[in-house]
Design a protein around this nucleic acid. Structure first.
Lengths: 127, 127
DNA sequence: CTCATTGGTTACGTTGAGGTGACCGGTTAC
DNA sequence: GTAACCGGTCACCTCAACGTAACCAATGAG
């Protein structure tokens, strides 16, 4: 029999994601949350994002936003005021990404309890 | 005005994911692909998974599968044969996770080109 | 004069995820 | 005798992601 990776349906599919998923790849551990936060609609300021995405450092938030901007997911609007004001919002492309990410977020909300139970059961068995 | 994180709609929401998303958190960079691979339906053997999820090492695949098993996402079936045979498949819970993950995978397939264009444009501007 | 504000940047240090390569056990085929 | 098969495990090392803390520029308020 064939190695699975060469079976008709599979071979093509595999090559696709290895590269593709690494894009969707919530590159750093905060990316998904930033996109979800921005998905609420209105532009958010840098400081507000920091507050909403609890725990993220200024450094990493900056890096994350730059990457998302580079990838065309997020648009940055800088206002020449003092003190500075900068707003971030999803682009059209970003809004399409927001959909599956939000779905994932909802999955997490819905099934966290189940996962935790499974974990306890598993750990109890191994003890 | 209020800091955004304390505005009515937001405060509750934020606390939720910080913890919750870290669960859906495609803990390591391979988890999503493993779940998607298993989502095709039938049980897959360890070796086949390695082949399908190109680039993953045996060590990390083992770790990933153990974690998924612990979380109740994946079921492991070991057959007492020689040479050994072990099959993995999604549990009912795993199948519910497969849905949003596959959606994310499809987003990647569909929009990779756009992202790459955006990147080039951005880099060209900065050069 | 000095402090607060906003949106960063920079230098530095740590840690843990992930990669590599060697090794194993039980059985069959050569 | 030995090689191959499969599904791992173990020891070891590396690199980049992340966190922390200091600093900055321009303006208005006190």
């Amino acid at each position: 029999m064939w190695p699975l990776s060469q079976k008709p349906g599979w071979a093509a599919a595999t090559a696709i994601w290895s590269t593709r998923m690494s894009l969707a790849r919530l590159d750093n551990k905060w990316t998904a949350m930033v996109v979800i936060a921005l998905g609420r609609g209105d532009g958010l300021r840098f400081g507000d994002l920091r507050a909403v995405v609890q725990g993220i450092s200024a450094k990493v938030l900056t890096e994350t936003l730059r990457d998302l901007e580079r990838d065309g997911i997020v648009a940055r609007h800088e206002y020449a005021e003092m003190p500075p004001r900068v707003e971030y919002e999803l682009t059209a492309l970003g809004r399409t990404l927001h959909v599956p990410l939000q779905a994932l977020g909802r999955w997490a909300e819905k099934h966290t309890a189940e996962v935790l139970e499974a974990r306890e059961a598993y750990d109890a068995g191994r003890r």
